[in-house]
Amino acid sequence: MAFEVKLPPLGDDAPDEAEISFWYVEEGDTVEEGQDMVEMVTDKAAFTVPAPVAGTIRSITAAEGDKVQVGQVMAIVEQ
C-alpha cells in the first residue's frame, strides 16, 4: 500500500508553505515509521517531517529548494 508524505496543515492563518532544505533519504531507501525524511524551513523554524509508515520510498516529488504548499505530496512510501 502506498502512503503519501504531505506537508501537514496548521490552519488557515498559519503559513501555507514551507521550503525544503534537504532530503535525508533517496528514492529506493527503506525507512522506519517516524524516521526523519526531509528537513523544511518556514519563517519561524526548521522542521523535519517523519515517515508516516515503515516502507520503501517509491518516489520523491519535490526537490531541495522547492516551496511546498500545505497538503502537497512530497514523496510516496510503499509499505
Binding site: 504531505k6 506537508l7 501537514p8 496543515p9 496548521l10 490552519g11 488557515d12 521550503e19 532544505s21 534537504f22 526523519d36 528537513e39 523544511m40 524551513v41 523554524a45 526548521a46 522542521f47 523535519t48 517531517v49 517523519p50 508516516p52 529548494g65
Partner: peptide
C-alpha cells in the same frame, strides 16, 4: 536556507492525522 536556524531550533512535524481533528473542530 539550510543554515538559517541553529540546530537547536529544529522541530519535528507531527503526523497529519493527529493534527487534522483539532483543525476541523476549530474551523
Amino acid at each position: 536556507v539550510k543554515n538559517r536556524f541553529p540546530a537547536w531550533l529544529k522541530k519535528r512535524l507531527p503526523a497529519r492525522d493527529r493534527v487534522e481533528p483539532v483543525l476541523a473542530l476549530l474551523k
